[in-house]
Amino acid sequence: MKHVPNALTIGRILVAPLSLYLLWTGTFWGQFSGTTLFILAAITDWLDGNLARKYGVGSRLGQFLDPLADKILVLGAFLLVPFLAPLDASLTRPLGAWLPWLAIGAIAARDVGVTWLRSVYERRNRPLRTLSAAKWKTAWQLTFLISVFVFLTASHGRDLDGFFGGLFRFTYATLTSIGPLIFLLVTSAITVYTGVLYFTGREESDLV
């Protein structure tokens, strides 16, 4: 059991590029398979930490690998989203062109900053534990990404007739509305806020 959490984390690292490649193909089956793998990888993100805590088998290797796996999976997906989903469809250019990238850039900058802070703590032999707010942040990020990928996959059926055709046309209309962009901006704001908590020393009880 002590090796299971790390095995799940390593599996997430290996699956992430395949999932992102399948989503990139733009085909229904590619995006369906990529979305399925992404959801399974997201589940392992929750499962490995819970198993490590439940059985007391946490390790320094796991503390290093888990954030790395998250960055490969989540940041990779965020960087892919603007190429797949028309987040700027409801806005005029140039605002619509750069606003999604600004939000994603803020998410990436926060992760780079926290990674640097974690390395500083490691050099002092003081591992930086994940804040409780950061766990909610990850859940929010994954909810956004999974929603976009599910709606993107469903939009392939918008040319069908009947109930399902209408349903899939609705998902495509939602995807091209301003809703996903607002969701992304809120996700970015939450992500940056959790980064501020690390650097301001908030929730000190969570730091070793």
Score class of each variant (00 low, 15 high):
21 Y>E: 06
163 F>H: 11
52 A>K: 05
105 G>I: 02
123 R>E: 13
3 H>K: 11
102 L>I: 13
207 L>W: 07
107 I>L: 09
53 R>L: 10
51 L>V: 12
172 Y>V: 03
152 L>W: 00
148 V>L: 13
106 A>Y: 00
10 I>P: 00
27 T>A: 09
96 G>W: 03
72 I>Q: 04
133 A>P: 03
204 E>M: 08
16 A>S: 15
183 F>E: 05
81 V>M: 13
142 L>N: 12
62 G>D: 10
33 S>Y: 11
207 L>V: 13
204 E>I: 10
194 T>V: 13
38 F>V: 10
168 F>N: 12
88 D>Q: 14
74 V>E: 04
52 A>C: 11
6 N>K: 06
142 L>R: 00
3 H>E: 12
88 D>M: 01
107 I>Y: 09
197 L>E: 14
159 D>V: 09
21 Y>C: 03
78 F>K: 01
147 S>Q: 09
79 L>S: 07
8 L>Q: 00
142 L>Q: 12
198 Y>R: 05
202 R>N: 10
10 I>H: 02
177 S>V: 05
37 L>Y: 12
104 I>N: 04
72 I>R: 01
195 G>W: 05
118 R>Q: 11
109 A>C: 12
115 T>I: 12
82 P>L: 03
65 L>E: 01
8 L>I: 10
68 L>F: 13
114 V>N: 02
199 F>Q: 00
58 G>P: 01
140 W>S: 07
69 A>L: 07
134 A>R: 09
67 P>D: 05
54 K>Q: 13
16 A>W: 02
151 F>H: 08
183 F>I: 08
88 D>K: 09
130 T>L: 13
197 L>T: 01
52 A>P: 01
156 H>K: 11
91 L>K: 03
155 S>V: 12
7 A>S: 14
124 R>Q: 15
185 L>E: 06
22 L>M: 10
160 L>P: 02
130 T>G: 05
129 R>W: 06
180 P>W: 07
108 A>F: 14
99 L>D: 05
185 L>S: 07
67 P>L: 03
172 Y>A: 14
164 F>G: 09
175 L>H: 02
10 I>W: 04
26 G>H: 01
20 L>A: 10
206 D>Q: 15
170 F>P: 02
31 Q>H: 10
177 S>T: 09
196 V>K: 11
190 I>K: 00
57 V>E: 06
99 L>I: 12
181 L>N: 06
45 D>V: 08
194 T>R: 04
176 T>K: 11
162 G>W: 09
169 R>Y: 08
116 W>I: 15
187 T>R: 00
82 P>E: 03
39 I>D: 03
191 T>Q: 00
151 F>V: 13
17 P>W: 07
87 L>W: 04
39 I>S: 04
152 L>V: 08
134 A>E: 15
134 A>Q: 14
77 A>G: 08
130 T>R: 05
180 P>D: 10
184 L>N: 05
36 T>M: 14
135 K>Y: 09
197 L>F: 01
7 A>L: 15
122 E>A: 15
120 V>C: 13
49 G>P: 08
62 G>C: 10
31 Q>F: 03
148 V>W: 02
67 P>N: 07
137 K>I: 01
189 A>R: 08
32 F>A: 15
183 F>S: 06
9 T>Y: 00
63 Q>I: 03
164 F>H: 04
55 Y>F: 15
20 L>K: 11
37 L>F: 14
69 A>F: 03
75 L>K: 00
122 E>V: 12
68 L>P: 03
118 R>K: 14
200 T>V: 08
